[in-house]
Amino acid sequence: MKAGWKSIIATALLATLASVAATWVSATWIMREREPPSLHSIIHHELDLDADQKQRLDAIEDRFAGRRQALQAEVRAANQELAAAIAASDGDTPQVQAAVDHFHSAMGELQKATISHVFEMRSVMTPAQAEVFDRRIVEVLRQDAG
């Protein structure tokens, strides 16, 4: 009789593990499918770029990569500053508001630089490519807005 219970428990455990694994795989797949395409993916996989365009776009992307990292670091620093101001305060103090302003400024600079980068890349494209690019960018932004 003990062997019977062991088999039932082993089967239940295996079924549970299989269920958890299947759920995790499904959730991972669904999230990946719902994730909007990256700017890089749109440019390099959805547009028919010639060799010169690829080279020019690679140079633009390389140049922006360093700028983006610096801007993202500033956003993270502003976020840390905000966290510290909140932790040190007992309410909505001038220090908290200054940290909020710093965070908004850093985020704004990142957004402005990213938009400038998008238009710089667009300038390398043919009118037909730019039309596809614009449509896809608008779709991604609308998707992200909910």
Rank of each mutant, 00 (worst) to 15 (best):
R68D: 09
T28E: 01
T28I: 01
R34K: 06
W29C: 00
R32T: 05
A84V: 10
A18E: 09
A88L: 04
R136A: 07
S7M: 11
L17C: 05
D134G: 01
A51Y: 00
V20N: 04
E120K: 11
G66M: 12
R63H: 00
E33C: 01
L57P: 00
R135I: 04
S19Q: 05
A130F: 03
A130Q: 08
L57F: 06
T28N: 08
D144V: 07
V20I: 12
S38R: 13
A83N: 15
M125R: 09
V138L: 01
G4A: 11
L110G: 01
R68F: 06
H102Q: 11
A88S: 14
A15K: 10
W29V: 02
T114A: 14
T16I: 15
D62E: 14
T23C: 01
R122Q: 12
T23A: 14
Q129Y: 13
K2T: 09
A18C: 07
A59F: 01
R32N: 05
D50L: 09
S116Q: 15
W5K: 02
Q95T: 05
V118Y: 08
I60S: 06
D58M: 13
A73L: 03
R63N: 08
A84R: 15
L71W: 03
K6H: 04
Q129T: 08
R136L: 13
E109C: 00
R142T: 13
R67F: 11
R136F: 10
D92L: 09
A106W: 02
V140M: 04
A15W: 03
V75T: 12
I60R: 07
A10K: 06
R135E: 11
L141I: 07
V25M: 10
Q53N: 06
A106S: 10
Q55A: 11
R32W: 05
Q95Y: 06
S26F: 13
D58C: 01
L39V: 00
D92Q: 11
K112M: 11
G108K: 04
G91E: 03
D52W: 08
A51F: 02
E120T: 07
A15E: 04
T16Q: 11
L141P: 00
S7N: 06
D90C: 01
P37Y: 14
G4I: 03
E35R: 15
A83P: 00
L14I: 06
H45Y: 02
R56L: 11
Q97P: 08
G91P: 00
V132M: 09
I86W: 10
E33A: 05
D144K: 14
P127F: 12
M31A: 15
T114S: 14
L13Y: 10
G108Y: 11
H104K: 14
A145N: 12
M1E: 08
A83D: 15
L39A: 07
E46L: 08
S89T: 07
V138K: 04
Q143H: 12
M1W: 02
L47G: 00
A51N: 11
A113E: 13
A59S: 13
Q97M: 15
V118E: 05
R68G: 03
R122C: 01
A87W: 08
S123A: 15
E35L: 04
W24G: 02
L17P: 00
A113S: 14
